[in-house]
Design a protein around this nucleic acid. Structure first.
Length: 411
DNA sequence: TCTGGGGTCCTAGGACCC
DNA sequence: TCTGGGGTCCTAGGACCC
């Protein structure tokens, strides 16, 4: 960093991303309340059965499925702005959304299509500003500090260029916040949605950040917020007013110290351009709750399928892992996980199925099940030296783990 | 009217090793 | 013989995020 440059970090997120991509396919739905969600088979079918002939844009609005007719098990991933007027929002159950806005249209989630647009807009960004951190399908951080023109108007000029370029290349809009660090940039990008640009400086801390509720901090979720409220802290300013030691006493060493830093707008995390995955998983919520005994065959088929999918994902992306795990969600929404570390790395469906099967025998199966998942962790690249090493001699630990599983499987 | 799917990181206890 | 650290790996659960 040169002496003259002031650290400027941008956070960009796409406006109503999934819904906006769908509106490019179906422009006739513009201005109407639309929700994307569920991905339930019924909705998929309704969309597949839309009248053929002409282009997608020719399909009459009346032919699209209505939320009230298709609300099943599942949640909304994105709602268009007209739908949001009715109080419908992401992560809301479809049933609840159908009460609020029965006339909304519903579309199934099409991840492949969103990924295509995700790659396109990120490519546009890296051509202008190479230091970009991927934060999921519709979000990135960008380091403006060393980019020519990145300092002009605190970053606003560069942000406008990026917005324009993304719109030209994809037809999609986004909101950008620029600040001295990631923490503040993330908050700033929410200030003026949609299509907004917000520029925040250190000197804005008291006027623009401190009045915000603590929940706006990336990392303070429902649990931490509830505890803060119980302690009489609602805003970031009120958090900043507490002594660091007091926060440490109430929230522990790491969290307390972190909260203090955050409240004072301090964050020195770098923008990370490359990262390796730690785990890959597949999970599915059943259309109806399943019983381990009564629905054994159905569960077994789903279980095998999940293992095959994870194996495919690993192979396609070129990774192997050695910690295999399962996840169950019971009808009461409680979650149980079990995992086992095996001796050599794998991406093989049969090995995953076998190990996951042993995990399944260690978990209570009395209650009806709502969800089943399979996970492979401790990943390394399939072409790395570690991955191809012969299996080391079994340690006492791994022998103990095997023994445990074998004993349990007798029951 | 209950609440998806795919991730990351942290904590905490026990085993094991030095 | 007893006591005691530190460090790492493994496992289960949980908070949080997109």
């Amino acid at each position: 960093m040169t002496a003259a440059s002031i650290r400027r970090i941008a956070h960009l997120d796409m406006d109503a991303f999934y819904a906006s991509v769908e509106l490019l396919r179906y422009p006739q739905l513009r201005g109407l309340p639309v929700v994307i969600g569920g991905g339930r088979r019924k909705v998929d079918e309704a969309i597949r059965n839309l009248p053929a002939g002409g282009t997608l844009a020719d399909i009459p609005v009346e032919a699209f499925p209505l939320l009230k007719d298709y609300a099943g098990r599942g949640v909304i991933t994105t709602a268009t702005y007209p739908a949001r007027q009715f109080g419908v929002g992401s992560a809301m159950g479809l049933m609840k959304a159908a009460k609020l806005c029965p006339q909304a249209l519903i579309l199934p989630v099409d991840f492949d299509e969103y990924r295509k647009y995700s790659r396109r807009f990120k490519q546009v960004i890296t051509e202008i500003t190479p230091v970009m951190e991927d934060r999921g399908v519709d979000e990135v951080y960008i380091d403006f500090t060393e980019v020519p023109g990145g300092q002009r108007e605190g970053g606003r000029v560069l942000a406008r260029l990026i917005q324009r370029s993304i719109l030209e290349a994809t037809g999609l809009t986004c909101s950008i916040g620029i600040a001295p660090n990631k923490l503040l940039a993330k908050m700033a990008s929410e200030f003026d949605k949609p299509k907004g640009i917000s520029v925040v400086f250190e000197s804005d801390l008291q006027t623009r950040i401190w009045p915000l509720p603590c929940r706006k901090v990336n990392g303070i979720g429902p649990k931490a917020d509830e505890k803060l409220q119980r302690l009489g802290i609602r805003t970031i300013g009120e958090l900043a007013a507490r002594e660091r030691d007091w926060l440490v006493q109430n929230f522990g060493k790491a969290t307390g110290a972190w909260m203090h830093e955050v409240a004072w707008g301090r964050d020195d995390r770098p923008v990370v351009t490359e990262s390796e995955p730690v785990s890959m998983s597949r999970e599915t919520t059943f259309d109806r709750d399943l019983q381990a005994v009564r629905d054994r065959a159905e569960l077994g088929a789903i279980f095998t399928h999940l293992c095959e999918k994870v194996a495919e994902d690993l192979q396609r992306k070129g990774y192997v892992g050695k910690t295999i795990g399962i996840k169950l969600r019971y009808d009461d929404f409680k979650i149980a996980t079990r995992d086992q570390t095996i001796e050599s790395f794998t991406a093989d469906a049969k090995t995953i199925r076998q190990t996951a099967g042993r995990c399944l025998k260690r978990v209570p199966l009395e209650r009806p099940l709502r969800l089943l998942g399979v996970r492979v962790g401790a990943l390394v690249r399939a072409d790395s030296a570690e991955a191809s090493q012969p299996a080391p001699a079994a340690t006492a630990r791994s022998r103990a783990a095997e023994g445990l599983a074998t004993t349990a499987s007798l029951f």
